[in-house]
Nucleic acid binder design. Sequence first.
DNA 1: GGTTTATCCCAAAACGCTTTGGCGAAGTCA
DNA 2: TGACTTCGCCAAAGCGTTTTGGGATAAACC
Lengths: 348, 348
Amino acid sequence: MTASPSDDRPRPASIRDVAEAAGVSITTVSHALNGKGRIAASTRERVRRAAKEIGYRPSASARSLAGGRTGLLALSVSSPTDLLLSLADVDYFMQLTNAATITALEAGYALVTLPVAKDESLLTRVNVDGAVIVDPVARDPSIAHLRERGVPVVTTGRELGSEERGWWVDNDHRASTRWALDHLEAQGAKRVALITGPPIVSYSADLIAAYTGWCAERGYEPLTETVTRSATEAGGYAAATRLFTRSPPPDAIYVGLDRLALGALLAAQARGLSVPGDVLLAACTDSAASRAADPPLTAVNLGPERIGHAAAEMLIDLVEGREPAEAHRVMPVELVVRDSTERMAARV
Amino acid sequence: MTASPSDDRPRPASIRDVAEAAGVSITTVSHALNGKGRIAASTRERVRRAAKEIGYRPSASARSLAGGRTGLLALSVSSPTDLLLSLADVDYFMQLTNAATITALEAGYALVTLPVAKDESLLTRVNVDGAVIVDPVARDPSIAHLRERGVPVVTTGRELGSEERGWWVDNDHRASTRWALDHLEAQGAKRVALITGPPIVSYSADLIAAYTGWCAERGYEPLTETVTRSATEAGGYAAATRLFTRSPPPDAIYVGLDRLALGALLAAQARGLSVPGDVLLAACTDSAASRAADPPLTAVNLGPERIGHAAAEMLIDLVEGREPAEAHRVMPVELVVRDSTERMAARV
DNA sequence: GGTTTATCCCAAAACGCTTTGGCGAAGTCA
DNA sequence: TGACTTCGCCAAAGCGTTTTGGGATAAACC
């Protein structure tokens, strides 16, 4: 049978029913079930059984109302000026979200995934106990809003301009960039270019800073293309095409997002350039598409599950009034070398 | 300033504060703000202004408790026997989810994305007003659970065995399969094979049925491989490899999921078979990876946004006690022809 | 002028839980 | 034995809404 909208079924068991069934007061039931007050073990057990027996499920609303917490956490991508980065990296976001969802559920919270909020009120309309903001852009009004209301916020990636304040989880993008650049150099690259988004999010800024520093150390002139419109294949294609018209053109490109990299790959191949024969290509984020590309792309695995887990964990600490062990957590990364940067690799 | 966990800020404005500010009772405030009772236009306006002035935001918990609704909708992938299909199709799922989230928010609901629930209690732990279940497997206990509790459920894809009951949104997979198969035939295929998951979800069953029927009409012997383990590239690779050992081997493969198709592509190329030269390849779902593959894969675009939107819309109708216009909605699909099935296409 | 009918608003009762403060009974110590 | 303490439980006061069932007042009708 499907449930008809106008079904009137018996109302669900309440704490009062449990109290009656167990022959105690509702106070005792509440305490017994939540492990709060001082309750004899036998009583606790009796209450538990009674609750189970009659299929008691506490009402989240009542609990929130009385306890002051909703049990909801928000996870949102910060609102960029436009849709630039939204869903730029589906795989990354999905894995991060999944890990955070699971962590939240294990702690008794539900995680609401809010989309990029053009309308800042979205984040304020749903009543959440805390929020994870992925890749915050500096001075995001909706983050400020949340903080004003006393809602704890953990960001993945730092808020540029207020690095020390706030709680965040991040990768060490500077280190990973150097790692990748060194790898490209070791594979024989003489002129490494960078394609990235604008430095409105911390990882783009980190990439640019690390790249610039790396070039300076070697006396190279930086060769950078910034994608400002859409961080999709098309954007990467255009940026790479521009790079190839420089003289001398780059013989290796490090790209900030996997979709940009896939676009860059197309651009190279469209010009008859072989990857990795003529140009080496590596990306800062990994994905199924990068793995499946021809040739498969060397990429930095940022460990999105770790990030999502850590962020949720930190947020829950904050929500429950515990001081997190560290205000800032830097998570490890891993360079996954694939054919796109292997000079020795056989071309398919 | 970041919010410290032990911040004690003034408690947020309640309906009582608004009532006081506007010089009316809380009943009037409630009615004015929700457009319920009969309120003089002037009073309504005065209340609205007062509410805005003091920054009143109704408490979702209190509202749920009193009104009996939580304002939460769940979206979940049905629990398959194992992780078989979970996230098989990230792109599809993501787009569907996003559309549903937006639709929900526009109607004043928040959408909670619940992960594949090994533990059936997950779906029951969060108190939701309704649930969208993506690709339900037959007799999923958590769906039954929800229905028992009177929680409306809309599925995307049908529940096999109870097709007529229940509300669902689906694609016409039989039609799209025939479309794709006809296309393969038109491109010269003489022996078309099928790779798909086991028929525990309706679209797999539809694919198999449509394929079998199509073969029967032509007097062909069906050539099917079922992926039972994991619907990833590896699974597709293995299935395709098995197909190529048949004699005669297929000269075209229609694949149920994009990741399986990408695996099949790898398998073909690993055996030195050219796509589309020696084997045509088409997939039932589209994705960025399919587009970016070499060659790009012909695929059926199922319109996940449309599905997500329609499902959320239908669910909200049910939650709010309206009878949806139709109990079953079949959404259009589109065959996107790319190089992998173009006999005429130049090989890269 | 009295009766009816609209109109606008309000008091009070839920909704189901958490938490505070307290009260007997039983145990402990001298 | 009395004075404390600890233990095990409970009554009652919220938490911030929605909703029900009127009650004033004003307008309309005869």
